[in-house]
């Protein structure tokens, strides 16, 4: 499924890289531990997290993730947004907590990595 479709179906607000939402999402990865995401996420994954620090952009670009969704109404720090624009990495936000958002992604057919 394409990122644009998910944004629309789950009513996500896009905060960065608004012109780069065409990418195909290969799966989902939920974690608030950067080292875990570095080690276990896969290319094209959509990352669900509470972390708003600019380091998340570095991790996401290194693993070539499709984008980041910040949960629980978290807003990215200004430095995070700047970096994300630079890296053309979409960051989206939602009021849903991780459990609920993942539940909805799962029901739309987004699977976790193995």
């Amino acid at each position: 499924m394409k990122l644009t479709e998910l944004i629309q179906k789950l009513n996500l607000s896009v905060r960065s890289a608004k012109t780069h939402l065409d990418r195909e999402v290969t799966g989902g990865y939920a974690s608030d531990l950067l080292s875990d995401v570095l080690a276990n996420s896969e290319e094209g994954n959509l990352w669900i997290t509470l972390q708003i620090h600019q380091n998340i952009v570095g991790v996401a670009s290194m693993k070539d993730l499709a984008g980041i969704i910040l949960v629980n109404n978290r807003e990215p720090e200004p430095e995070t947004l700047e970096k994300a624009e630079l890296e053309k990495l979409p960051i989206m936000v939602t009021e849903m907590p991780t459990f609920e958002l993942v539940g909805k992604l799962y029901s739309l057919g987004i699977v976790g990595t193995k």
Binding site: A30, I48, T98, F99, G103, L105, Y106, G112
Partner: peptide, 15 residues
């Protein structure tokens, strides 16, 4: 975590 949340949500647990 993703798979765990997905399955439990499908089976009826709420966030």
């Amino acid at each position: 975590l993703f798979e765990s949340c997905g399955r439990l949500h499908r089976e009826g647990l709420s966030g």
